[in-house]
């Protein structure tokens, strides 16, 4: 396989950006859902999509998805703080809901699950338009227990929709370990629904990317949906202020040692794609960018209470 350094560097950038978001937004917001340990999945899944592709991201990683699809960092940060400059104008939150104008389908209610159906609908529309665009439907192991998830996979398989289902399996849902949430391996469901399914090491960005490349190509060529289960681990708490008294500290430490970012860095260095200094510089630059965007957003204009207009809810 031809090695494409742009892709390799692009994925590192997305990983590093994800980590920068964790650092900056996480320091400010106790309800921030961190991605530590899961960066490889976000980077591999959201990198390199076409402009016309539609993404229903998992909520944990939704900002990475939006930025990968071209959303503006400043407006996304404003959206975390309910500022006027946000895509949502302060009406909604950007940490779980990216801008539809960039092909993102976020959470519009609190419920996880329904976006999987919306992704299928977007895929149906792409088929109708014959544009070769696809839809990504990304969800956690917890969300995979929702009827929405089962129904969406069945629907996509029956209609041969160009959807790539990705289970970002971090092995826990709040405090519920995956074995208590799922009766069997998630990727094996694919067979029952009649689509290809595979489990990959979610801490290996290259493995996830390879699986994505195959699934995306199949979807674009009219070959229907695929289910990829990327097995990783939520090193972070459910959210920043999570007391985490329900998990074994040794287990967390063991997974922290399997840090996907460090692993990928070692690969890039060994292959001579990027050196440590270049990556450190990029890391620092991205932290500075996110920090500057967040600080600017903090000083941004707030919505006027008089803006609550019932006519605004209708198109």
């Amino acid at each position: 396989m031809r090695r494409d350094n742009d892709v390799l560097e692009g994925m590192y950038r997305l990983m590093s950006l994800t980590r920068a978001l964790d650092r900056v937004v996480g320091a400010h917001d106790g309800h921030w859902h961190g991605l530590e340990g899961e960066e490889a999945v976000a980077a591999a899944v959201y990198y390199g999509l076409r402009e016309g592709d539609t993404v229903a991201p998992h909520y944990r990683g939704a900002i990475t998805a939006a930025l990968a699809k071209g959303a503006d960092l400043g407006r996304m940060m404003a959206g975390c703080l309910g500022k006027t400059d946000a895509y949502h104008l302060g009406r909604h939150r950007s940490d779980v809901c990216g801008p539809p104008e960039h092909g993102i389908i976020g959470l519009y209610g609190g419920s996880l699950g329904p976006p999987l159906g919306y992704a299928c609908g977007a895929a149906l529309s792409h088929v109708m338009d014959g544009d070769g665009d696809i839809a990504l439907a990304v969800f956690g192991d917890g969300t995979s227990s929702r009827g929405d998830c089962h129904e969406a996979m069945n629907m996509a398989a029956i209609k041969a929709l160009p959807v790539v289902f990705v289970c970002q399996n971090n092995q826990i849902a709040i405090s519920t370990p995956a074995p208590d949430g799922n009766g069997g391996p998630i990727f094996e469901r694919a067979r029952g629904f009649g689509m290809p399914g595979a489990r990959v090491d979610g801490n290996d960005v290259l493995k996830v990317r390879a699986a994505m490349d195959e699934a995306i190509a199949r979807a674009r060529e009219g070959g229907g949906p695929t289910l990829i289960e990327a097995r990783t681990y939520r090193v972070a708490g459910h959210f920043v202020s999570d007391a985490e008294d329900y998990r074994d500290a040794a287990e967390i430490a063991a997974w922290r040692d399997r840090d996907p970012v460090a692993r990928y860095r070692a690969f890039l260095i060994e292959e001579g794609v990027m050196d440590a200094a270049a990556m450190d510089a990029l890391d620092a630059k991205l932290v500075a960018e996110v920090d500057a965007a967040f600080t600017a957003a903090q000083d941004g204009a707030v919505p006027d209470p008089g803006d609550l207009m019932p006519e605004d809810v209708f198109a």
Binding site: G82, H88, G90, R91, H92, L308, M309, P310, D312
Partner: peptide, 16 residues
């Protein structure tokens, strides 16, 4: 509250 989905910004919440 007006017939609007519960808004996010604190300023809008207060007015809501």
């Amino acid at each position: 509250p007006p017939p609007i989905p519960t808004p996010f910004a604190r300023e809008l919440e207060r007015a809501y």
